[in-house]
Design a protein around this nucleic acid. Sequence first.
DNA 1: TGACTGAATAACCGATCTGGAATATAGTTG
DNA 2: CAACTATATTCCAGATCGGTTATTCAGTCA
Lengths: 118, 118
Amino acid sequence: MHPAIPDEFLDLMAEKFRMLADPTRLAILRALMGGERNVSRVVEETGRNQANVSKHLKMLADAGLVARRKEGLQVFYRVDDPLVERLCKLVCETIVQEAEQEVERHRTLLSGWSKASP
Amino acid sequence: MHPAIPDEFLDLMAEKFRMLADPTRLAILRALMGGERNVSRVVEETGRNQANVSKHLKMLADAGLVARRKEGLQVFYRVDDPLVERLCKLVCETIVQEAEQEVERHRTLLSGWSKASP
DNA sequence: TGACTGAATAACCGATCTGGAATATAGTTG
DNA sequence: CAACTATATTCCAGATCGGTTATTCAGTCA
């Protein structure tokens, strides 16, 4: 029912996840989710320096997550894999939910404490 | 419309993805998706050695993706985060789709070639 | 052509990650 | 108690990663 998955396939999966496993790349993707952007604009919106952004953009492009378009001096990038938005959305929601649960847990702990020690 | 996301939140997201960004951990999770398993069984099903599996299981447990249950000499693990299956499913589907598109692309290239050179 | 701009690359370094071997721990059984 | 089993931990080497600085490349414009 649950046959093992060939290593080659696991590597492909891991690579997809690895691309999303870095805060700078996530920030870049977030910027690109606002629409196509040139490198300078991504630099502004992410607060990272230019060399760094260029390097990560290359990784993302090599992995096929973003597409490149050259126009004169500038280079424009855009998200090019529908997976990106869906994965990020799922994870975001989960983190928010976990945070809410944590708040709720504290609330109940606190109420128990206030009852237990009047 | 698309405000920047605080680095602290990006770090949380990256950490989730990082846990899934390794073939061995994916193999382990795959095994656990078949139901609760003790370490030895995970070792068998993944083909990795024991120390390695134990180490990765600890990471997954610390990250809250799997849960631990001790029973005598053995320790049983199970998937404990609904996110895992959903993320993996999405990525798997995408990879399969990409592979299919690749095949299709080759097919059309090939047909064009056979027409062009009779 | 030369000056200028936006982007990519190279070189370097510290940090982190992975796997393997050896060792340690916890629990069972005789 | 000692021997054994299942799991965890430690230590190590090699690889990869991420950020920074400096440099290079490509394209524009005077």
